[in-house]
Design a binder for these strands. Structure first.
Length: 568
RNA sequence: GCGCGAGUAGCUCAGCUGGAUAGAGCGUCGGCCUCCGGAGCCGAAGGUCGUGGGUUCGAAUCCCGCCUCGCGCACCA
């Protein structure tokens, strides 16, 4: 890109005026385009080491600069000592040729060098439908995964199923109670159980399919046992109900994710960590490594050695049941990620999980397996508040009343849901106003962006031009000199660096912001300048610009998992 | 009390790792439809960037104190 030539020319010029060899040249886009195409604060940063005034240095740099080599049409000194550069418009416009000629590689890079990255997201317990928080995770995780793919990582999307533990027991108990109730037995779901309508549906399905096999006496006995805080005598039936319930909810969750357009490469079951012996292996290794101690009959891990403010229990005392605490399988799980060859592991989770960060990393460090300190990386998103009918919908699994991902998709459409979740930074809290999203669905930002894409497609449709046959390299792009065209060209040329930055920061919302801005520039340009039926040199140049813009908008939308319609 | 996150326009939020006159969407007000899609375009109003210090040529951005709000601080998962 021409900016590289400019950077190099500045390097040469700065040495000529006596700057240290290691001086870093930083080029930026000025906030105000009237200042030029590129700006640098080089004169200001050199002021101190060289002991001269910034404006004098700017003057010296300007004189020493080889304009032709830098591709610069004009240099200005402004403010406290900024150097502003204006590139030759035609030369700048020629940069978009390669977008059209090599769209497949546009905004792609190989920063990751083909190394493997694991993105774990959603990871909902199979105890209920996916709620809005999972929706935010799905949108974030999928977009992050795609961004990493585009920047050269070999990505695997993973869903971790917490299919063991107390919550699943409570799920099975809840189903049991609902079945009993449908047989007319007067019992209530105990504390910690699940009250949602879907439990009734599962219970109903079990009765419909296998009602003949149910023995009423067993159902009654079990229901009363559950109500009394005990276990049903018919363990077989209990296991079967648990399996049925988990399977039913997994099916539902899969359907939700399918409706959202997200698919996973791997579904990892927590239970497999136990059956494969990974949990005991991990515990043994930690004990052998000398990072554990016993106290009060419980086994502790010295997580304080690795930055935690308190040592954590790994294995409860016999009096408390002797089970492992949740973070032990979590550590074992992340060991498998490392062993499966993932150079990076990224966990997308709600901010309420942040206490696990230190613990899991501490566990991995304590194993002394050469796992990097920052492994795994976490993208924690803040809570989502749902507003509906003017008031906040309380998210409560217990009451069973909460907004699901499916609800959102039904209300505002998949593309809009994706965009709304991604237009904000993950670590700011988010108010999802359902009424607003619904009422605005005709005028919301995602349609605005898609409209820009559809309009460009319309040019080719109306002009009966096969856009795929356009070539940038042989086309004279110097007619693209109008301010609206130059702004659009710059926005397109900035796209690869933006993707790179967004991927590095794991921040998809930057893509969303770029899309909105570029769509705005597109509409402005489209409104002011015609493409078809202009003199050939102008039409041909504008066709390339239209095509480059269309491809770039489509690329940005695709990164976020949003469709780019040809017409709306 | 400790840890993490947030506090920017009436509302919802950006601000690209310290730059010039702080932006967008929605909302409000006012213009533009014989021309590739008006699901659009153009313009206006609206800000002591929570607050008090500090760092420097320069701070919404970095450091410290304080104030609000959210989340987390179990031998729960």
């Amino acid at each position: 890109m021409s900016a590289d030539a400019l950077k190099h020319a500045l390097q040469v010029a700065s040495r000529a005026i006596g700057a240290p060899d290691n001086t870093e040249i930083i080029l930026e886009r000025p906030r105000d385009p009237s200042f030029g195409d590129w700006t640098t604060n080089l004169a200001m940063t050199l002021a101190k080491p060289l002991g001269k005034k910034p404006r004098d240095l700017a003057q010296a740099l300007s004189s020493a600069l080889d304009l032709a080599a830098a591709g610069v049409a004009k240099v200005e000194i402004a403010g406290p000592g900024f150097l502003n550069f204006r590139l030759d418009p035609g030369a700048q416009a020629s940069g978009i040729a390669r977008i059209v000629d090599d769209a497949v590689h546009w905004a792609r890079s190989n920063t990751g060098g083909g190394k493997r990255a694991n993105i774990e997201f959603v990871s909902a317990n199979p105890t209920g439908p996916l709620h809005v928080g999972h929706g935010r995770q799905a949108a974030l995780g999928d977009a992050i995964a795609t961004m990493l793919e585009w920047t050269g990582w070999n990505v695997s999307r993973e869903f971790y199923y917490n299919d063991g533990g107390t919550q699943i027991e409570n799920l099975a108990k809840s189903v049991w109670i609902r079945i009993a109730q449908q047989f007319g037995i007067a019992v209530e779901i105990p504390e910690g159980g699940y009250n949602g309508e879907y439990i009734k549906e599962i219970a109903g399905a079990v009765i419909a399919e296998k009602g003949d096999e149910l023995i009423l006496a067993h159902v009654r006995e079990g229901a009363e046992a559950i109500a009394a805080g005990k276990h049903p005598a018919d363990a077989n039936l209990f296991d079967r109900l648990r399996a049925e319930a988990v399977a039913a909810l997994r099916r539902e969750q899969d359907k939700d994710m399918q409706a959202f357009g997200v698919s996973f490469d791997t579904y990892f079951l927590e239970s497999s960590l136990y059956t494969d012996g990974k949990v005991t292996q991990t515990v043994d290794a930690l004990v052998k490594g000398g990072h554990t101690f016993e106290d009060g009959g419980a086994l502790f891990l010295r997580t304080t050695e690795f930055g935690d403010d308190k040592d954590r229990v790994m294995k409860k005392s016999a009096a408390k049941g002797g089970d492992y605490t949740y973070f032990v399988p979590d550590v074992a799980y992340h060991v498998t990620k490392w062993q499966r060859g993932f150079a990076r592991a990224i966990d997308v989770q709600g901010a309420d999980h942040h206490s696990t960060v230190t613990r899991v990393r501490a566990g991995l460090q304590a194993l002394e397996m050469g796992i990097p300190q920052g492994y795994p990386e976490y993208v924690l998103h803040q809570m989502v508040t749902v507003m509906k009918d003017g008031e906040e919908v309380k998210i409560s699994k217990r009451a069973g009343s909460y907004v699901t991902v499916r609800d959102l998709i039904d209300w505002v459409g998949r593309d809009a849901v994706r965009y709304f979740f991604l237009m904000r930074k993950g670590d700011s809290q988010l108010v999802f106003d359902v009424d607003l999203a619904r009422s605005e669905s005709e005028e919301n930002p995602v349609y605005y962006i898609q409209m820009a894409h559809a309009r460009l497609s319309g040019i080719f449709r109306v002009g009966e031009i096969d856009a795929t046959t356009l070539r940038g390299a042989g086309t004279d792009l110097s007619p693209l000199t109008a301010p609206e065209e130059q702004l659009l060209v710059k926005a397109l040329l900035d796209f690869p660096a933006l993707v790179e930055g967004a991927a590095q920061a794991l921040e998809p919302h930057r893509i969303a912001g770029w899309l909105l801005e570029t769509a705005r520039l597109t509409h402005t340009w489209y409104h002011k300048h015609h493409v078809l039926n202009e003199p050939p040199p102008i039409m041909n140049a504008r066709l390339v610009l239209a095509r480059a813009t269309q491809l770039s908008l489509a690329a940005g939308l695709r990164l976020l998992g949003i469709t780019a319609p040809e017409r709306m």
